[in-house]
Every structure is written in C-alpha cells, then in structure tokens.
Design a protein around this nucleic acid. Structure first.
Lengths: 112, 112
DNA sequence: ATTATATATATAATAAACTTAGGTATATAA
DNA sequence: TTATATACCTAAGTTTATTATATATATAAT
C-alpha cells in the first residue's frame, strides 16, 4: 500500500466527520467507508486508526460500547456532546485549510 | 499563531508548486507568498521551512545560490530538472488527495 | 480437513514532519 | 535606542504516522 504523507493531521477530522453523519460506527467499518468514499485512494492503517480512536475517546469526544456480533467483538464509537461541537469546528477548519491550499496549488505559473 | 496539524505533509508540495510558478524564490519570500495566497490562513514556521528546503536540495530537487541584496544574504532556490518532474507528480498527488478528502468531508449526514 | 481470506481489535518500535524556542545579523521606522 | 521587518539557521521535544506483530472468529476455497 502506498504511503500517504499528505494524510497527516486529517485523520481525527475524518473520524469525527463520519461519526457526525452516522451516529455510531466501529473501527473496521470506518476503514471500509473511507476506502469506499475515496475510491481506494485513502487506506487507513490500523496502527493509525485505533490509537486515534482511543485518543479521541480519552479526550472525551467519543464514547464506546462493545457488542458481540456474529461471534466477534465490535467496539462502536459515537460522538459525545462535546465531540459534536468539536466535529463541527474541525470540519470547518479542514475545509478552510483545503480552500487555502487550493489557492496556493492553483496559482498559475508566470508566463515566461 | 494557530497550530495547523492539517499542514503536515503538504509543505514540500507547496514549495515545489511555488518554484514551478516563479523560477526562483528565497525562503522568506516563500513564507510571505504562502501567507498572502492563503489570506493569512497558512503561516509557515522557519523551523519547518528551512529544513524542508535543505532536504529538497539534498534530494536533488532544488539548487541554491546565495546573493547579497541590500546588505543581507538571500539564498535563492530553483527547481532542478528532476525537481520539475517531481513537482508535477507531487502536485497531482496532492490534488487527488484533496479531491478524495472532499468526498469524505462532503458526505451528507444521514437523515434521522 | 486445512488453508486462505475477510472481519475485528490492539500495541510496540520506528520514522517522519512538524512546533517551539532559541540564536545570529542587517535595515528601517518610530 | 527601541521595535519591527527582513533573512537565515538549528536543536529539543511532540505529534502523528508507518511497519510489524499479535490475537481471535467466520467463511469460502481446495
């Protein structure tokens, strides 16, 4: 799988956005949704995802409940009240950053 | 100044893009251009910028020449041949990533 | 039966890329 | 003479990722 240095810093925002739209999700489900929505372009690694989920939970933005489904344990995450506000803020920040980055990347080369 | 974790990974691409459009630039000039193009939203820190320039030079993507202007030393950077090709690739990758991220961040919340 | 793949979570070692803080130095405006 | 702008640089520490490994069940293929 390709390394993706551009992904740095956006993982928390992606998680919060998905949980804003889906009420509750589990880790593996998040990896699949991201893969699907990015048409395979963004593949979350477990080593990045699970620590990120744990951190967001430790910060009080997410709460988790474990359920057994088809004989396997699933850990569902959902936004807390505080997490919901943070989600809105982080998504707005990310959008602003993307817009600014577009402004830079779209600067037309000077005609020689 | 606000910390901007989203910036991670995009700095090299920003530098290459600016040099693709401007033939040659010096470090301080790059910080000002980025600040201007992002309307103050993206402020490069020297601690990130200068090591990045040195790394790109060490990789053979940039070459540098020092000039004294108004009594102060300026280090001008420009793309090498190889750097030009890398610039094109990195910018395309960044654009693809931004598009994929947009797809994720634009996913509409499910109607409850 | 057994092997491979998909589902599902987790952590440790390592590496990359940043922030923060400090240092050096000149020109100019207050 | 003090502050601000210009101009470069590096070191220490932090954050955030990759890579590798571990555990475990369900299901499809051989």
């Amino acid at each position: 799988m390709s390394t993706n240095p551009l992904l740095k810093g956006t993982l928390h925002t992606i998680i919060l956005k998905l949980l804003e739209g889906n009420n509750r999700m589990y880790g593996y489900e998040i990896t699949q949704k991201v893969k699907e929505a990015s048409e395979g372009g963004i593949m979350l690694t477990e080593g990045a995802l699970y620590p990120a989920l744990h951190k967001l939970q430790a910060e009080g933005l997410l709460k988790a409940t474990v359920e057994i489904v088809d004989g396997r344990a699933r850990k569902y995450y959902q936004l807390t009240g505080h997490g919901g506000k943070e989600a809105t803020d982080k998504i707005n920040e990310a959008q602003a950053f993307i817009d600014q980055l577009q402004n830079i990347l779209n600067i037309k080369p000077a005609v020689k």
